[in-house]
Structures are given as structure tokens and as C-alpha cells.
Design a protein around this nucleic acid. Structure first.
Lengths: 159, 159
DNA sequence: TATTGGAAAAAGTATATGCACGTATTATTC
DNA sequence: GAATAATACGTGCATATACTTTTTCCAATA
């Protein structure tokens, strides 16, 4: 005959926290972003700014919320990041037809800095890619996408 | 007979920037860290703080620079993160034997909050792990470690 | 059409991040 | 032992990040 065990408080096994996805992601992001930033430093922009400018170049004019959704960034974070780019004259932010919305557009100055930044970014990207196989790289990118999908609130629940 | 081509400025192919390791890492880190933070919110600490407390619990007393090296965090970033934990009485920071150093130690309060946080962290970690196979997870962690090693300045050059 | 509900965005507050620089302490060298 | 180099750390400044609250505007409905 079996008995229920007492509800004891088990000391957590913190050893397994070494495999925390969040911790390891943040650690790698710090290191990798610093690496890109270092190569971009000569022209005075950071990797976060480069990524936003590239996206704006590819997307064309876009509202703040749409851009935030697309790059998986909190809207208020994006607003502040855009303020920096606007101050540098790399983007313009104007009111949309729906006057609640704000349309973000890359400027000529933004395109110029993008062209300057591209070879620097490419160098950083190449060096990092050199540390892993093509299969590893594709696997990594796939896994990162899967993570984003896994943790994002289900959009279908909105309807 | 071959000729050297004119040194033309080629329009960059920004399409390939979609595979930027830094951009995709940051994006996943934003989403994933938010997910952990959401589950940790009931007890009032963030995933960054949880990770630091876990590390301090496992390592015992440690200097700021050693800790920064181990978690691949800028020393000044760590100082500020520790200030928050110190304010909450989760860690103590005292002068070491070498009076230049500062010894960081987790407190009783820190251990208490750790025990409370563990099941919440475990739940988040489990849900995320559920989105991928064991092989994928191990591959991801391996790739993240490889990235950190790839971009870190070669330590042997210091000697 | 007046109201009400929802959407888009900014501002306030706080943590996270890192570079440049300065200070205190230890180690080294002459 | 004094001068110098190296180490450990913090502060000032700026960007990156996100939650909460408030404001503005559009849409739907009674």
C-alpha cells in the first residue's frame, strides 16, 4: 500500500539554470552586438541603428506600430530608438493619413550612412559566419525564429 | 587579355542583412527575456537579476571583475546591475583583501527570493524547451557558446 | 450626432548596456 | 625606496529596453 509523501520543499537544482535560454541568449547578444558595434564605430552608428535603417530601407515608409511588430520590438522602445535616428537626420517621422499614426521614412542621409555601413557590417557578419558551418548558421537562425514564435502571444486570440 | 574592372561602387545587397546574426539575436533576446520576465513578475525580479543571483549562489563570493568576465558582461554594466540587487538587499558588496577589489556575496534575502523564483523560472524554461527538440536545444546552446568564443578578444594575446 | 470603445503614440519611470575617463591600490622597476 | 606601470573599480554620458499611464484620434453604435 502506497502513501502520499509529505509536501516537502525541495531545494532547487540551480545547476540546470546554466542552460537558461534567456541567460545564454543575453550573454551571446552582449558579446555579438559589441562585436558589430566595434566595427561600425568608425562611422558613428550602432548595430541596432544599422538594423533599423536597413529595415526601413527595405520596407519603405511604415508606421511605428507596424515597424515595432515587424522587428519584434516594444513600440515605446522603438519610439526612443527612432528619436535618436531622427536627431541624426537619418529618418523622418511625420503624421499619417490616420492622424493617430506616425509614418517613419529613411532619409537621403540615412541611405548615405547605410552605404557606408554596409561593408563594415558585412565584415563583421563574415567573421562571425567564419566561426561556424553553413548548416550551423542556418540552424541557429531557424532556432532563433522558432524561439520568437514560441514565446509570442498567439495573434489569433486577438480575433 | 584581361583588364582590371573600374572600381565602381556597387549598390549593397541589403537583402542579406535579414540574416544578420546580431539583429536576429537581439530580436530573440527581446522576445525571450520578456517571456521570462513576465513569469517572474509576481515576485518582482527580472530574468537578468535572477541569472546573476543564481550565478552568485553557485560561485560564492566573487569580485566584480571576475563575475563580469564569467558572465560576459561589461564590468560597468555589472556594477549598475549589482547596485539594484544591493538596494534590494539581495547581495552585499564589501572590500576584498586586495582593497582595490570588491567582493560580491548573495545574502539570505537573496537566497529566499531565489527559492521563490526557481519554480517560475523553471516553468518559463520548460515552456520554451517545449517548442524545440532536445537536439535543437543543445545545438542552440552550443552555437551561442561558439558565438561568444568567436567574438571575444583572444585572451592569449594578453600574455 | 453624441457617446463610447478601441487604436496609436508619447511621456514618466526604471533597468540594462557599454564607452571614456578618473581614482585608488597594488605591483614592478630602477 | 621612489617612480612608474598595471589592476580594480566607479562615474558621467548615451543608447537600448519595456511597463504604466495619459493623450489624441478614429470607428462603431445607440
Amino acid at each position: 500500500m502506497t502513501h502520499l509523501v509529505d509536501p516537502v520543499v525541495v531545494t532547487p537544482d540551480f545547476e540546470c539554470c546554466k542552460d537558461c535560454i534567456g541567460f545564454n541568449l543575453r550573454k551571446a547578444t552582449r558579446a555579438v552586438s559589441q562585436f558589430y558595434d566595434e566595427l561600425l564605430r568608425p562611422i558613428g552608428i550602432r548595430s541596432t541603428q544599422y538594423s533599423l535603417l536597413v529595415y526601413l530601407h527595405m520596407s519603405g515608409s511604415i508606421t511605428v506600430t507596424q515597424l515595432a511588430d515587424n522587428v519584434v520590438m516594444d513600440r515605446t522602445t522603438l519610439t526612443r530608438n527612432l528619436n535618436v535616428l531622427e536627431k541624426e537626420k537619418f529618418v523622418t517621422v511625420i503624421s499619417g493619413l490616420d492622424r493617430r499614426t506616425r509614418l517613419v521614412t529613411i532619409t537621403q542621409d540615412g541611405l548615405v550612412i547605410l552605404d557606408k555601413a554596409y561593408p563594415l557590417w558585412y565584415q563583421a557578419q563574415s567573421r562571425i559566419k567564419g566561426a561556424m558551418s553553413e548548416a550551423q548558421l542556418n540552424g541557429l537562425l531557424d532556432n532563433l525564429s522558432a524561439l520568437v514564435k514560441a514565446v509570442q502571444p498567439n495573434e489569433t486570440l486577438k480575433n
